[in-house]
Computed example of a mutant assay.
Amino acid sequence: MTDQAKPRPEFRNINIFKDVRTYRLPWAGKVSILHRVSGMLMFVLLPFVFWMFDTSLSSEISFATFKGAFNEGLGFVPGWFVKLAALGLIWSYLHHLCAGVRHLMIDMNHERITKEWGASSAIVTLVVSLGLTVILGAKLFGLY
């Protein structure tokens, strides 16, 4: 009696309604998609970054306005939402940086990269970027 491996499903034409729910994306794929999402988020929030930079450096009065935007809000936008947008920007920068370093390591050592290394490095990338985001988010929300 021979042991035959269970045949793996072959996805040639993925049906968005049937196959996507059951398809299990590996950790490396999730990190790669998040790398793209974080890059897009940084691009979309670029005007917010320019505003923060310009407002914080213009004068003492504009810095007080900038600080007030994070505490009291900005017009109809509450302060917690401004902090949440800044936290999204912090996460996108940190994740994009960590995933970019991971991609550079893969590019430099592509002959020696295994599936196991890819999966473990993807998990490390997620843990490091989320851990740093939590630390900086705690500072942003005034927990220390």
Rank of each mutant, 00 (worst) to 15 (best):
V37W: 00
H35T: 05
A28R: 03
L97A: 11
Q4D: 14
S92N: 00
W80E: 11
R36P: 00
E111V: 14
L46F: 00
S121P: 01
W80V: 11
S32Q: 08
N13F: 10
D19I: 00
H95P: 12
M40P: 00
M52E: 10
K30S: 00
V77E: 02
V77R: 13
A69G: 15
R24K: 07
E60P: 11
M1E: 03
V77Q: 12
V82D: 03
L45I: 12
W27Q: 07
D54N: 15
P78E: 04
N13K: 04
A138S: 10
G142E: 09
W51Y: 02
F66Q: 15
T133D: 05
I106P: 03
A138P: 04
P47R: 09
L140A: 01
N109P: 01
Y23E: 13
R8N: 07
T125R: 07
E72R: 06
K18A: 09
G75I: 11
A28I: 06
N13Y: 09
A99H: 08
G118R: 01
M1V: 05
L34F: 05
K83N: 09
L140C: 00
G73S: 03
M105W: 10
F17D: 10
H103Q: 07
L104Q: 14
E111P: 10
M52H: 04
G118T: 00
V101R: 04
L84H: 05
L87S: 14
F43G: 04
P7E: 03
M108P: 14
L132D: 00
L34I: 12
G29K: 01
P78I: 07
T2Q: 15
V20F: 08
K67G: 13
G75F: 11
D19F: 06
F70L: 03
E10P: 05
F48D: 02
A86R: 07
F76M: 15
H103D: 11
L89T: 10
G73P: 02
L46T: 02
F43K: 05
Y93L: 15
R8H: 08
N13P: 11
L41I: 07
V20W: 12
E72N: 10
N13A: 04
A85C: 07
L25M: 14
T114N: 04
F48R: 01
V134K: 02
V44Q: 04
G118Q: 01
L126T: 13
R102G: 01
D3G: 06
A138H: 10
